[in-house]
Amino acid sequence: MTEVGWTNSYLLGPDVVGAVERLRGEPGGEIRVWGSTELIRTLAEHDQIDEYRLLVHPLVLGVGKKLFGDGFPYTRFALVESRSTASGIVINVYRRAMEA
C-alpha cells in the first residue's frame, strides 16, 4: 500500500512505533485503531495504548482471532464507562489505571 483514501488516515511506514509517537505529539485529538490485532499488539508492546473501547456483541462465533492472545503485554486498565445499546451491544471503555 502506498496511499490511503480515508480522511485523516496515515500510512505508518516501516517504523510503526516511531510514526505513532510522532502522531501522538501532534495536536488534533485521539488516534483510533479499528480492527487491526497486529497493530494493537505492536502498540501495546511499546506502551502506546491509553484507552480501549471494547464492544461486546450478543453472538458467539466459536472461532476467530484473539485480541489479547498468548504473550500479550500485561498492563493495568480501569473500567471508566459501560453502556448498552438497544440491540444488546455492550460498550466498555477502559483507561490506563494508576499504579498502586
Rank of each mutant, 00 (worst) to 15 (best):
M1G: 11
T2N: 09
V4N: 15
V4K: 02
T7C: 13
N8H: 07
N8E: 11
S9C: 07
Y10K: 13
L11Y: 00
L11S: 02
L12A: 02
G13Y: 01
G13R: 02
P14N: 12
P14L: 12
D15N: 03
G18N: 01
A19I: 00
V20H: 01
E21V: 09
R24L: 14
R24S: 09
E26K: 10
P27I: 05
G29E: 08
G29S: 00
G29P: 04
E30W: 08
E30Q: 12
I31H: 15
R32E: 07
V33S: 09
W34F: 14
G35W: 05
S36E: 06
S36D: 15
S36M: 15
T37D: 15
E38T: 14
L39E: 04
L39W: 15
I40F: 01
R41L: 15
R41G: 09
T42A: 15
T42V: 13
T42D: 13
A44N: 06
H46S: 14
H46M: 11
Q48E: 13
Q48H: 12
Q48V: 14
I49D: 00
E51Y: 11
E51S: 13
R53T: 15
R53S: 06
V56R: 10
V56C: 14
H57N: 14
P58E: 05
P58D: 06
P58A: 04
V60Q: 05
V60C: 03
L61C: 03
V63K: 07
K66M: 11
K66T: 10
F68H: 03
D70A: 05
D70R: 08
F72Q: 00
P73I: 01
P73G: 00
Y74Q: 09
T75V: 07
T75E: 10
R76P: 05
A78L: 05
L79T: 02
L79N: 00
V80S: 01
V80A: 01
V80H: 02
E81R: 03
E81P: 01
E81I: 08
S82R: 14
S82Q: 10
R83V: 04
R83K: 13
T85C: 01
A86W: 08
G88R: 04
G88T: 05
I89C: 06
I89R: 06
V90R: 10
I91Q: 06
I91W: 08
N92R: 11
N92I: 07
N92F: 06
V93N: 05
V93G: 08
V93P: 06
V93K: 04
Y94W: 06
Y94I: 02
R96W: 08
M98N: 12
E99Q: 09
A100E: 14
A100M: 14
A100Y: 15
